[in-house]
């Protein structure tokens, strides 16, 4: 069980220079094992800074980050170990590929964990399976693959470390709709099979509505909202206020309600919209 608890986290970049900038201010939050979380927020709201604290890539200016009650910044060793438990996939992770073959690149993480050869091979195969990278690609150079394939190889490189918490910073940025959907399905698949906590940083409200159980909304370096999609999407205006949107389905539902179509219940996914419309149709036809 990996429980991450963040207390009063504050981070200031370039402290003490004219470029000083506080990216996040006094953030406290707890993430429990197996949760599927989306972190939302406009550009510069501090969400990327926040996730880089969860595996000790950034050290807090003030505050603590604990995993299972232990401070991850206690010493060098705990800072290193937490990177194996909390896997972080950066934005545009395909730019970090460097090995000669796909298989070797996926194996980079496990190799750094000093695992045996058989164990590494098994993990590479397993991770590639999760993201749908076929074994026929294993001996190719990662630089000759297509954009979507590169992205999946890079994600596999982190999954191969079998993290208990998987964090992805805008995993679908710059991909076409099919590519994005495949990646989101791959991530869901990994969570269901491994029981890991998954945290996705995103702008995409439709993905948020479809793939997560909990939403955390960042605004100007602090948490503005934290709750289930139902709770968060009920506050359309507040979301607009922080420069975000509501899912397409919720937007359509709101427009229909305005014109007098009686839709029942919370509507923010396509399925919910369809169901609500059918019910509304039955009501009016009788």
């Amino acid at each position: 069980m990996a429980v991450i608890s963040v207390e009063n986290l504050t981070h200031t970049y370039s402290a003490g220079t004219p470029f000083e900038q506080t990216a996040i201010r006094d953030v406290s939050v707890t993430l429990t094992q197996g949760e599927s979380i989306f972190v939302l927020g406009h550009t510069g709201s501090g969400k990327s800074t926040f996730v880089q604290h969860l595996n000790a890539l950034l050290q807090p200016t003030r505050g603590t980050v604990r995993i299972d009650g232990e401070d991850i910044n206690k010493d060098k060793i705990s800072r290193r170990d937490v990177k194996r438990r909390v896997g972080l996939v950066f934005q545009y992770p395909e730019y970090q590929l460097f090995e000669e073959t796909v298989a070797e690149d996926i194996a980079f993480g496990p190799k750094n964990m000093k695992l045996s050869k058989e164990e590494i091979n098994e993990r590479v195969r397993e991770a590639a399976g999760f993201v749908g990278v076929e074994e026929s690609l294993f001996s190719r150079s990662p630089l000759e693959l297509s954009g979507g394939q590169k992205r999946r190889v890079a994600i596999a490189g982190v999954i191969a470390m079998r993290p208990e918490v998987l964090i992805l910073d805008e995993p679908t940025a710059g991909l076409d709709p099919i590519g994005s959907r495949t990646i989101m399905e791959n991530i869901r698949n990994y969570r269901e099979k491994s029981g890991a906590t998954v945290l996705v940083v995103s702008h995409n409200m439709d993905d948020a509505a479809r793939y997560c159980e909990r939403l955390i909304v960042f605004d100007h370096g602090s948490i503005r909202m934290d709750g289930t999609p139902e709770q968060v999407f009920a506050h359309t205006e507040e979301l607009m206020d922080v420069g975000l949107n509501v899912p397409k389905a919720a937007e359509i539902a709101a427009a229909l309600r305005k014109r007098g179509v009686p839709l029942e219940g919370a509507v923010f996914t396509h399925d919910q919209l369809l169901r609500a419309l059918r019910r509304a149709g039955e009501v009016t036809s009788c």
């Binding site: 890539l57 990177k83 992770p93 730019y95 980079f108 750094n112 982190v158």
Partner: peptide, 13 residues
């Protein structure tokens, strides 16, 4: 900086 962080996240030392 970004690449270093990404590789560190994959356990590079």
């Amino acid at each position: 900086d970004k690449i270093m962080s990404a590789q560190k996240a994959r356990g590079a030392d």
